[in-house]
């Protein structure tokens, strides 16, 4: 049985889709079977970020409504043969996602894949609650910024109350993925730093992805950043996060902590 992961945040635009694609590709590079499911019905983007937008024929809603078989809707990645995408519908709305339908699809995917990654839409409505419903593990994507942290706190509350795991009295495994982290701003004290966010949300840290042009470049060419440039800083952060997801105990490097000579002299936060 595969593991179901929800990538969620509450707040929009923090990097859920970017992270779903990057982690999916990172996990699949080791030969594990991965499917990334777009739950953002009406506003799909995962297909674009993964470079599969021209290959979408059927989608999640078609499968749920019985208009297509699951195997017809799954798109295999052109670069990695163990990576698949299940796109969302662009023309219908979230009401077409039924709890029963979602359950059926997830159950089938769990049987066929090692990892089922659910890219949640923003918000706390139906799409978001259905995306998290069957999760074994949650990745809470947060930017170091007040509104994102607040929304993440809200989402953590929902993960602990509205999911199947929570309803069965089990504890949802939650991880924090801090994205769009700008070391210079954190250093200047104009952005919440890693410790601040960890202290406030108090869930374990899965990784820190720096703010980077490489993410934009990767999405421009339709490639998860872990495939586009595996040596870029965000790609390395996602690769490490993927290893931690698999249970490896890797220390998390805080971007900007490794500084050059001048950085050491001028950039340090003195006691």
């Amino acid at each position: 049985m595969g593991k179901v992961i929800v990538v969620t945040s509450g707040k929009g635009g923090v990097g859920k889709t970017t992270s779903s694609a990057a982690l999916g590709a990172a996990l699949a590079q080791n030969g594990e079977k991965v499917v990334v499911v777009d739950f953002d019905v009406g506003l799909r983007n995962l297909d674009l970020v993964m470079g599969a937008e021209r290959r979408v024929v059927y989608d999640l809603v078609n499968v749920i409504q019985g208009e297509a078989k699951l195997t017809q809707a799954l798109i295999r990645d052109k670069r990695l043969e163990t990576l698949y995408l299940l796109p969302a519908s662009q023309t219908r709305d979230k009401d077409n996602l039924t709890p029963e339908g979602v359950e059926k699809v997830i159950t089938a995917l769990k049987r066929a894949f090692d990892w089922v990654i659910c890219d949640s839409p923003a918000g706390i409505e139906r799409g978001a609650t259905l995306a998290m419903r069957h999760a074994d593990v949650a990745i809470v994507v947060t930017n170091p910024e007040v509104s994102s942290v607040r929304d993440s706190d809200r989402i953590i509350g929902l993960l602990d109350s509205k999911t199947l795991k929570a309803e069965n009295g089990e504890c949802m495994e939650k991880h924090l993925l801090l994205t769009r982290y700008d070391p210079a701003r954190a250093e200047r004290g104009d952005m919440l730093n890693v410790d601040d966010v960890l202290e406030i949300l108090s869930i374990p840290l899965l990784g820190i992805v720096p703010e980077s042009m490489d993410v934009l470049r990767a999405s421009n060419v339709g490639s998860p950043v872990t495939l586009a440039d595996g040596h870029s800083a965000p790609a390395i952060a996602y690769f490490d996060a993927a290893r931690r997801l698999k249970g490896e105990n890797l220390p998390v490097a805080i971007p900007g902590e490794k500084r050059g000579f001048f950085g050491k002299i001028f950039g340090r936060k003195a006691a």
């Binding site: 007040v146 942290v149 607040r150 104009d190 936060k269 003195a270």
Partner: peptide, 26 residues
């Protein structure tokens, strides 16, 4: 920080404190 003497005060501590109070209530 040597340069910070001449710059604006940091805003992150305010963000942290406001969040802590707000989230405790929420």
């Amino acid at each position: 920080n040597f340069f910070r003497l001449f710059s604006r005060p940091q805003s992150a501590p305010a963000a942290r404190e406001r969040l802590q109070v707000l989230l405790a209530h929420e």
